[in-house]
Design a binder for these strands. Structure first.
Lengths: 217, 217
DNA sequence: CCTACCGATCGGTAGG
DNA sequence: CCTACCGATCGGTAGG
């Protein structure tokens, strides 16, 4: 009579390492073929396991995509924070460090960056809160500068939104390859990020503030 | 003996209208299910034709996606330009009109907006040149304001990149749903766009320009 | 523009 | 973690 019980002893055990290998594979897919190509089977293929294995680590495809985004936010936050630590206490230097680190990450991991802010992962709560953390960091930065009296008063959330929008927009447009169509220097993204940050810092106006629209003469 | 020649007379003729219906269907897919779901078969299904029909109008899937992006750029340019026409000659009013129209389009067609600036369509030359046209419009706007002496001197391309980055970043972050995590007023995107534009216009600095970083005391 | 067909990929599950 | 299997979808082509 054959044994009726499942031979759990000879069943391969899910190694914690496999999850990391699968995640790295998924990130690689994002970079090479885009979000649309991220799948449990393709990740398994690149990770060198069979296509049933990923389900031991990720509930479904959406969870894998979300994991790619979350991993990206972790790395982004780490890089941004360490850049700020290096920058010290000078306000403009800190803004420059923020902008440069943000752009550098985006250009270094364009596929993953797109996943982080793409529609596929937007619904994931963990991704939303990671996004909120980035915003919170910007708000803190603004509030600190205000306490030192170094930038204008005003709703720190609004000012932080301006700063983030500028950095994020620049990153997205550069990933998109805009630079190839423009006379600006592509080879020095850091320099461009600093220029844009400085312009944002100074504003576009000339002389007195031009907030109120004047009537046509 | 059966006729050997193809009965071209009884073969349905490709109607020019079908292409438009397919394109509209594809745009709808982008809005409801995202870029990844745009396919010739699904478009055919929604358009009410058989799955072989789309090949009469679009060479392949990529061409359909590109068409969605191109159509989006046409509409965006039209809306932005008409908003500027209404705004008249006041510089700040024109900037506000630009920012508001841009954000309004993005929030009104988030799926299509994502296709316009997504990786899938980025390689398409027609999309790249449409993108360049948006940038050119911004450069023109900046250069005109400079000629009137109403904004700071400087490379108009750099200043235009700042303006576009700000508007684009705001649009992307809002599409992403950032607003739900922030205390800012979601219900009035136009107001928010104007605030951000005004802040960009004035800059963040307080008192004298703080371009040069000072050494820590 | 339609019908019919191909090869390939995918998500997911059962069972060991 | 593996093997085997399911149903579904897709891009694309042949032929009328």
């Amino acid at each position: 009579m054959l044994s009726q019980h499942v031979d759990t002893v000879n069943m391969p055990i899910s190694t914690p390492d496999t999850k990391q290998v699968l995640l790295r594979a998924a990130v690689e897919i994002a970079e090479t073929d885009g979000v649309g190509a991220i799948g449990l089977r393709e990740a398994a293929r690149r990770a060198g396991v069979t296509h049933g294995a990923p389900y031991r680590h990720f509930e479904n495809q959406q969870a894998l995509v979300a994991a790619v985004a979350e991993q990206g936010f972790r790395e982004l936050m780490a890089e941004v924070q360490s850049a700020q630590a290096v920058a010290g206490n000078d306000v403009l230097a800190r803004f420059h460090a923020l902008g440069v680190a943000y752009l550098r990450f985006a250009l270094g991991h364009p596929g993953q960056f797109r996943v982080m802010f793409g529609a596929e992962a937007a619904a994931e709560p963990a991704v939303r809160s990671a996004e909120a953390a980035v915003f919170a960091l910007a708000v803190n930065e603004i509030a600190g500068a205000q306490r030192q009296g170094l930038i204008a008063a005003g709703d720190p959330q609004e000012l932080a939104l301006l700063a983030w929008s500028t950095s994020h927009g620049l990153a997205v447009l550069m990933i998109d390859g805009l630079v190839q169509w423009v006379g600006l220097d592509t080879t020095a993204p850091e320099r461009l990020a600093k220029r844009i940050t400085a312009l944002m810092f100074n504003g576009l106006q000339r002389g007195v503030p031009a907030v109120r629209s004047r009537r046509p003469s």
